[in-house]
């Protein structure tokens, strides 16, 4: 059974034996061409592009949080006890998630032209589904008892939200926000490949010009930023939650 599956898969991907045999040699060749790393290139172009990437990720996450909160509320059945409204909200969240951020980026590059704005919006629109879904679920898991007590005291809707629900979902909210920011730092690094700003654009031009020593510097920079983001998220989470 498994053998059949493997054979079928290999036939489908159409492995070319010559290329496969050649691969180790090619990798070695590529690594040689990347060496020595062109560090002089970093302050020139890479640094600014890297900062732009982080800005795209942060601003995109922020925008997503603002846009996702109302949709998350509409999706939570205990807050909006109307199944049609919940379904429409969930449809919005699913459509946001079903489109890859690169596809969102292509779309926004088409509308706003190439640059960081398209990248920011792509990150935001891809994140709405993720943030909204998890935030809505956190709201649905909130204890109904305290909310009932506030209702019994005559508290209006807005006060029930801020005094009853918000303290209960606050840890989940910040946890979701940090996690999504971490993902977005990684995602925004590739958006430049389709012209949506950031370090991906530098990577794209270096690749097209076969400047392998520069490609290596860019890859190293992305790697470093992803690790830094990971450390920052872990530290902030430990301190806050």
């Amino acid at each position: 059974m498994i053998v059949v599956a493997i054979v079928l898969s290999i036939q489908t991907v159409e492995v070319i034996p010559e290329f496969l045999a050649d691969a180790p040699e090619q990798v070695a060749d590529l690594l040689t061409r990347m060496w020595p790393l062109d560090f002089a290139y970093y302050p020139d172009t890479v640094h600014a592009a890297l900062m732009e990437t982080i800005h795209i990720a942060s601003l995109g996450t922020l925008l997503a949080l603002v846009l996702a909160m109302p949709v998350g509320i509409l999706a939570a059945h205990n807050l909006v006890p109307s199944t049609p409204v919940n379904l429409v909200a969930k449809l919005i969240l699913v459509s946001s998630r079903s489109v890859n951020s690169l596809v969102w980026a292509l779309l926004f590059v088409g509308i706003f032209g190439p640059g960081a704005l398209a990248g920011t919006l792509a990150i935001a629109f891809r994140s709405i589904g993720f943030v909204g879904k998890l935030f809505g679920e956190a709201l649905e898991e909130a204890q109904p008892g305290p909310i009932e007590a506030l209702s019994a005291a005559g508290a209006p809707w807005a006060s029930r939200m801020t005094f009853g629900y918000w303290p209960q979902v606050k840890p989940a909210f910040w946890s979701i926000a940090l996690f999504r920011w971490d993902i977005n730092v990684r995602e925004s690094a590739v958006l430049g490949l389709v012209g949506a700003g950031g370090i991906g654009m530098a990577l794209d031009s270096a690749l097209n010009l076969f400047q392998w020593t520069r490609v290596a510097v860019i890859l190293l920079a992305i790697f470093a930023v992803v690790i830094i983001a990971e450390v920052v998220v872990t530290q902030v989470r430990r301190r806050m939650i």
Binding site: G154, A155, P156, S159
Partner: peptide, 12 residues
Amino acid sequence: SGRLGYVSAWRA
């Protein structure tokens, strides 16, 4: 929170 019926949500 027992005063939420009297105090506006914004002030609360």
